[in-house]
Nucleic acid binder design. Sequence first.
DNA 1: GCTATCTGTGAGAGCGCTCTCGCCCGTATC
DNA 2: GATACGGGCGAGAGCGCTCTCACAGATAGC
Lengths: 342, 342
Amino acid sequence: MSRSKPTIDDVARMAGVSRATASRVINNAPGASGPLRVRVHEAVARLGYRPNEAARALASGRPRVVDVIAVSCNLPGGWLGSNPYYSRVLAGMMPLLEGMGAQLRVHALSHESAAEALDEIAAGVTLGAVLSDITPALAARFHRRCRRVVSLVPTAATVPAMVADNIGGAYTAVTRLHRLGRRRIAAIHGPAISTCAADRRIGHLRAVQRSGLADISADAAFTREGGYDAAQRLLAQHPDLDAVFVACDLMAAGVVQALTAHGRRVPEDVSVIGFDDSVAAICANPPLTTMRLPVEEMAAAAVRLLVSGDISPGHRELFPAELILRQSTARMSKVGPGIAGS
Amino acid sequence: MSRSKPTIDDVARMAGVSRATASRVINNAPGASGPLRVRVHEAVARLGYRPNEAARALASGRPRVVDVIAVSCNLPGGWLGSNPYYSRVLAGMMPLLEGMGAQLRVHALSHESAAEALDEIAAGVTLGAVLSDITPALAARFHRRCRRVVSLVPTAATVPAMVADNIGGAYTAVTRLHRLGRRRIAAIHGPAISTCAADRRIGHLRAVQRSGLADISADAAFTREGGYDAAQRLLAQHPDLDAVFVACDLMAAGVVQALTAHGRRVPEDVSVIGFDDSVAAICANPPLTTMRLPVEEMAAAAVRLLVSGDISPGHRELFPAELILRQSTARMSKVGPGIAGS
DNA sequence: GCTATCTGTGAGAGCGCTCTCGCCCGTATC
DNA sequence: GATACGGGCGAGAGCGCTCTCACAGATAGC
């Protein structure tokens, strides 16, 4: 008995059929049938045969790999830093891929190496690529090289995308603060390079204009420190602020820390709403009300589109943001422990 | 001009050399040289040639894929939940893999599907697998099927592993609390199924015995809610506690929330130390002192071992935990804003 | 009973690459 | 100048699989 892995020829020999028939049975393609199917299956089981994926990919030309590409444009500290967003993206894709026997390949690219690396990936044998973090320029370039691409972040209109309703989400958040009776509502926005940040900024502005409020806002990096510092600045300029809309939870956690350090109570004195519904939101003290994006669903939809194959330039689907109520916007009366809704 | 991707034959033809020579140059193997190398490189550049990975893997038999396997045994809410730990694992591996042109394949398995899935993966063509979350039993089973395995979590002695010094880390944390003058030190441990949790429990116990302190402890799930509830229970039974060692930051964030809700100030009344140095630690209010594990380094070391090939059963390397000081254990005097050390 | 139409099966040609082997040519050795 | 050696190079045989195609054998139509 040979020490090496059994091949489809071994299976065919054992089953007493040709390699072609064995292949047909294994891929349950039509044209093989009856007792032969049984015999082949028996042989597979007895030999513990597993198809060699590389050979399959080579012979069929039909890949079974989905690439996930992240070019960190938002986050300092390098890719994936400690951002659970990527975890959610992967988590959304895995069950689907697992189910169809496809594999997931992760590419983390620095901004500098991205251009060449994208070419490399585009040339690869892949079902397609999910862009989970990328600048519009790079996304467009990538799409030009490789049509089978779906972006999870806003990009040029030609690139197929699953886009989250960042504008609507920000609008909802600010409106919520207004309904809570807040009138000095500040906003802390993310860096301009991020299209998500830009959209959230637009949503905020619309809500502010619609409500006839002053536009009190500051920019910051998408980090806890960014939020902390921005809150301090805002507090210095507008000591009377009574609510803060923050463009991401990580920043929002820093905002809450800054407010506490400056003697403001959350939510009694200042209401805070974050964005993303990340771990940062539940770990902040008090836990943060936030806008949740259906990241898992978006990632899954991206995979489905990729696999379906009929992916046209400009295809896009919009996913709404959901308001998750926690203590940072609780009404004044009773502030119970835990993550109670308001 | 053909619409399809250029192959190595196209390169060879354009460079006026044989396929073998082209291959030698592309893989910069010895035996090709001088002007030919230049010509081949030129042809590659002109054609935009990229080797087909599937064909490479098939022909060489030498795979260029590293599998990362996570069977969620710790986390509720499914795989990867929102746990940045996985992000750190991936982040640690990516630069290395990217550098050697290898790919990373992610497998997220549920506990039920794991057994068969592991067999499937073991049969695949892979440089090896990094087990980032798995029970000892499954890890051992996997190691039996596929020798090229490195675990990042404690397992049976035969399975090669990069192990974090959870025992020492917990010991350090508790000792720190003791040195701070705390004498009623409580601990909140993770679920028994997790070997990390078990080790942290051992470290805590050693420190407690060594310091002659009482063993005040509670068990909880590795979640914010788990920490919150456990802290409440502990507080009810031991209202005089003045420090809490918590087996993970996510729980610790909940602990801080519970302490605050019950009128305890952190760190003035109660010192808190978490574990992992995750996002949860910096988002908690106040930010948490915590034990940091060199997860990225461990993951990178795992890849290096896998690639080196000389991976013997029982191989293991120990990685120390590092104390990261933040406000939750700051000395009473001045509690400045931000993440100041103590 | 003969050609036409199936369906089930096997032979065999690749997929794009790596790698062994042997050839050729240049230099060292006698 | 003939023999040995060695390094650069090309020919060609696979790697394990898929898939086309041709060929049997069975059924149908005239």
